[in-house]
Design a protein around this nucleic acid. Structure first.
Lengths: 126, 126
DNA sequence: ATTTGTCGTTTACCGTGGTAAATTACAATC
DNA sequence: GATTGTAATTTACCACGGTAAACGACAAAT
């Protein structure tokens, strides 16, 4: 159920989600683009992710190819819910207020937001 | 700047924010209402919070009275920004979509949300 | 055949959060 | 004055995330 991931573990998962599958080397390279990380570190984290059933691997030739076992949805949803409950005591508008206040929001993003709200309002109106 | 707190530390801060100030005993009692916690645990965490300059204390008689040094704003904002950046790669609508999908949102909450968006839209229209 | 490079595996360390018992200090009560 | 109760402090674990070197296995290159 509640899949909690550390920040680097999350970044590893994000690579796997976008690529579908990847080798440890591939992941190390991808992560190193933003900030350098030792290959063995990535491997250790892959091990830990596998231990908690977040990923699995198959062997191809000599190397492991990793695949996500849990969906991005699951992780992002529980992270969002967790923040909402823990930090904002469930107040969606409280969370929203903070973000609107402190973030730059593009025009198109605002439009999408408004649409989200409208469609939700419509559906809850039965 | 970035004030990162654990979940129990956050709950301690929440007591301090709502009460303005409190003794360790008071905090232990408040937290124990939801789930029991040892008084010494609370004291240890108070110590750690003080070490990272999140709170301070003054002595009254024999007991310490703790006060928050950082505002709730600071913590909630950085938590929200952190989630947005790390988990949703900055996509506010992505975060919003998840929350609207998985949460029950009351009528009044929806109204407040819509108002937030509208007022933000208005102000950014200069 | 030996070297080199690349895997995966083992092992180890540190920081932080959380947990709490044990100890010390001291005021109030009996 | 001895006991009791409550504070704060000290000390000790454990789990987890992150970090990475060291080691061993093995295929490819020289």
């Amino acid at each position: 159920m509640s899949v909690s991931l550390g920040s680097v573990q999350l970044r590893i998962m994000q690579v796997l989600w976008t690529e579908g599958e990847a080798t440890a080397r591939r992941i190390t390279d991808a992560l190193s683009e933003s900030s350098p990380i030792a290959h063995s570190t990535v491997q250790t984290l892959l091990r830990k992710l596998e231990a908690k059933k977040a990923i699995t691997h198959i062997q191809q030739d000599r190397t492991f190819v990793f695949r996500p076992l849990i969906a991005e949805n699951e992780v992002t949803r529980s992270a969002a819910q967790d923040l909402l409950a823990r930090v904002f005591q469930g107040s969606l508008s409280g969370l929203m207020a903070h973000l609107l206040e402190s973030e730059e929001v593009s025009e198109s993003e605002m439009k999408r937001l408004r649409e989200l709200i409208e469609s939700k309002a419509k559906e809850s109106k039965k």
